[in-house]
Computed example of a mutant assay.
Amino acid sequence: MTQDTMNFAGQVAIITGAGGGLGRLYALDLAARGAAVVVNDLGGAVDGSGSSATAAEAVVEEIVAAGGKAIANAADVTDEAAVNAMIAEAVEAFGRVDILINNAGILRDKSFAKMEMSSWNKVVEVHLTGAAICTKAVWNVMKEQGYGRIVMTTSPSGIYGNFGQANYGAAKAGLWGMMNTLGIEGAKNNIHINCIAPSAGTRMTESIMDAGTLKMLAPENITPAVVFLCSDAAPNRKVLVAAAGTYTMAEMVETQGIHLPEADRTPEAIAANWGKISDRTDAVPVNSAMEGVAKLVKAMANA
C-alpha cells in the first residue's frame, strides 16, 4: 500500500518531558520528518523531585547529529513564567509554534486511604495544570497563525481507573475534559486538540511491569499514533488509545435512557428503571454540554 509520507518541514514542535521515554521518541521522529523541535525536560526523578538540563541536552545532541534542528529547555511545566519564556525562545529561534505535545508527567502512586494530599496536589499540578499552562502559552501564537496541533497525554487509568492512582487518574481524566472544551474553542482557528492514551514500558512504568510485559509494550509503538495527531490529517477532540501495536479510539457515550413523568421522578422509580436507563443499546456520543442538554429536552418533548 502506498502512503504519503508525513512531512513536518517548516514546522516547530514543543514536547514536554522529552528528555527520555516517550517524549524522546516523539522528538526524534518529528525531527527526522523535518520539524524543528524544542526538547523540554525538567530532568527530575519519576516522583518529580530534582532537576537537570542534561536529559534534554542529550536528546538535542541526537537530533543535531542526525542533521535535525533542536534546542533544549529545562522549564518546569508548572512554572508559568518559565513556560512563557520557553515559548518566546521557540518563536525567537524558529519563528512559530505549530505543535505542542503535553507529555511531561510524574507518578506518586498509593491507595487513596494512604495518599497524602501533597501527592494528590503535585500529580494534578504537573499533569493537568502543567498542560494547561503550556497550552495557554502557545494558544495565541497558534490562533494568530491560524494553525495548531496539540496532543494531551491521558491514560487508561484516567479513562477506566486503576488501583493506587486516584491522583494520576483524576489528572488524566481532567485532560480529556480540557481537550473537549479547547477543541471547541480552537476549531475556528484550525487548532486541533486530541488525546493519546498510551500503555508503554518506560521509566515511569518499569517498577510495576515484568520484563515480558515491558518488551511487549515497547514505547516505539506509541510514536506513530502521536505523530499522526500532530499532522495536518489529525482529527479534533478524539482519544486515541495505543499499546503494543494496537490502536483504538475511546469515546464517551450516553444511553437513550427514559423520560419519567413528573409524578414518577423518585429515587424508587429510578431504581426500578435502572435496567432501561443503563441499557447501552443505541448509545451515542454527545459532542458538547449544550448538545447533551438539547438531547434531554428533546426526550422530554417527545414524551
Rank of each mutant, 00 (worst) to 15 (best):
L175F: 11
D41V: 00
Y168S: 00
A242Q: 02
D79E: 13
L128S: 02
K122D: 00
R33Y: 04
D109R: 03
N73L: 02
A283T: 05
D29T: 15
N102V: 00
G19F: 00
T255N: 10
L25N: 13
C195G: 12
Y147R: 14
W176S: 12
I101V: 15
M204Q: 01
T266P: 05
E251Q: 12
L175T: 11
G177N: 09
M209R: 13
A299R: 08
E62Y: 10
N167D: 04
S207F: 08
G257K: 08
P219W: 10
I196G: 14
A32Q: 15
T202F: 04
P285G: 10
N73P: 06
N221P: 10
P267D: 09
D279H: 07
M216G: 08
W120M: 03
R280H: 04
P285S: 12
T255I: 02
A294N: 10
V297I: 13
D76Q: 06
G23S: 11
L25A: 07
A244L: 08
H259K: 12
T129D: 07
C134F: 04
V227D: 00
V123T: 13
R149Q: 09
V239D: 08
V227G: 01
G130I: 01
E62W: 06
G164S: 00
Y160G: 07
D232G: 13
E61L: 02
A58Q: 15
Y160N: 11
T2Q: 07
V284D: 10
I99L: 02
V284I: 05
S157V: 03
M6Q: 15
N102C: 01
I184V: 09
G23V: 03
V38E: 10
T54R: 15
L25M: 11
A242G: 15
A75G: 04
E254C: 15
M178P: 01
G130Q: 05
G17C: 05
G174M: 01
A13L: 08
D264P: 13
G257M: 09
A53D: 02
I222H: 13
E61I: 12
S51E: 03
A218I: 06
W274N: 03
R149C: 06
A9L: 13
A132P: 02
A283D: 15
I184W: 15
V38D: 15
Y247E: 07
C134D: 01
A218V: 09
A104C: 04
N40E: 03
A211P: 14
G148C: 01
V126L: 00
D79G: 04
Y160P: 03
L214T: 05
E92W: 10
A289G: 09
